[in-house]
Design a protein around this nucleic acid. Sequence first.
DNA 1: AAGCATTGCGTGCACACACACACAAGTCGA
DNA 2: TCGACTTGTGTGTGTGTGCACGCAATGCTT
Lengths: 153, 153
Amino acid sequence: MATRKLTPAEMSEADHAFYGLVWAGTTLTERVDRALTKAHDLPVSWFEVMLWLANSQQPVAASVLGNSTMLSRSQVSRVLDALQARGLVSRTPSARDARSVEVALTPQGRELFAEADATRRACLAPVFTDVLDQQDLAALGTVWRKLKAHKEG
Amino acid sequence: MATRKLTPAEMSEADHAFYGLVWAGTTLTERVDRALTKAHDLPVSWFEVMLWLANSQQPVAASVLGNSTMLSRSQVSRVLDALQARGLVSRTPSARDARSVEVALTPQGRELFAEADATRRACLAPVFTDVLDQQDLAALGTVWRKLKAHKEG
DNA sequence: AAGCATTGCGTGCACACACACACAAGTCGA
DNA sequence: TCGACTTGTGTGTGTGTGCACGCAATGCTT
C-alpha cells in the first residue's frame, strides 16, 4: 500500500492552511457523524438542527434554521420531518405569521440532544486533548471569528 | 431576517475550534467549487484528483488516489471516467500488475490544471490575505500536520 | 501446482443534498 | 380595496456520493 503523500515542502503556507482546514473539517465531521449515527441513530445534519434549537430557549422559525445552519432550507424541511416523526421536535404554526412555523425541541428531544452532545465531546476529546494544545485551539477559534466576521461584513 | 447567531460565550474553546474547522472547511470548499465550476466547468472533486496527479511526476495507481484524497475509491473511478472523457487524464494498464491502472495527466490536463490552480489561488487570496495573517496561516498548518500525523500513527 | 485469501478496480443501489418551482400568506402602494 | 411584489415553507427532480458487491489478478501456503 505504498501511498505517496504530498510532501509539505511542495506547498506554500497558504495552501497548507487551506488544505488543512478542508481536510480537518471533513475528517472530524465524518468522525462525529459515525459516532452519532452508531450511538443514537442520529446523522450529524439532524444533530446540527437540534444544536441550534437547544441553544435558543425560544421556539425558532424554520427559516432561521435555514439561514443559520450549513443546511439548505429544503434540507431543513426534510430533517424536521424526520425529527418530528421521532418525536424530537414540535412544529407549531406561528400565531403572528400564518406562513411561519415555530420549531422547538420536545423534552425527549432535549434529553437525546444532551446524550448526543456528550458523545460528540467524547468522540472529539481524544483529538483535541491529545494532539492539539490550548494554543492551537485558541488559534482555531480566532480563525473562525475572523472568517465569520469577514463573511457577515 | 432576524437571524439569531450562536454567541461565542455559550461555547467552550474546544467547541469553537471544532465548529470553526467544520464551518471554515465547508465554506471555503464551496467557494472554490463555485469558482472552479464557473471558470473551467471543473468540480472541486475533479480538481482534487488532478492536484494529486500534478504533484507526482510519475503515473499514479488509481488505488493510491483512493487512499490519498478525501474521495472514496468508487468516486475516484467515476471522476477518472469524466476526466478521461474530456481528455485530461490517461488510464493505461500497469505493466507490472494487470489489475492496476496507471493514471497520469495529459498535456491538456496539465494545462487546465495550471489555470484552475491559478483561479483557486485567486479565489482564496482575498480571504487569506485580508482576514488572516501569517500567524494564523502558520497555526493552521501546524494543526494540519498534527492531525495528519495523529491519524496515520 | 493447486487452492484460498487478498488486493485493485469498477458498478448497482440507496440515500442525502441542492436547485428550481409551487403555493400560501403577508406587505406595500396607488 | 385591489393589485403586484416579497417572504415562509414544502415538494419534485436531478446530481453526486458512499457502501456493498462482483470480477479479475496476484500472492501465499501447503
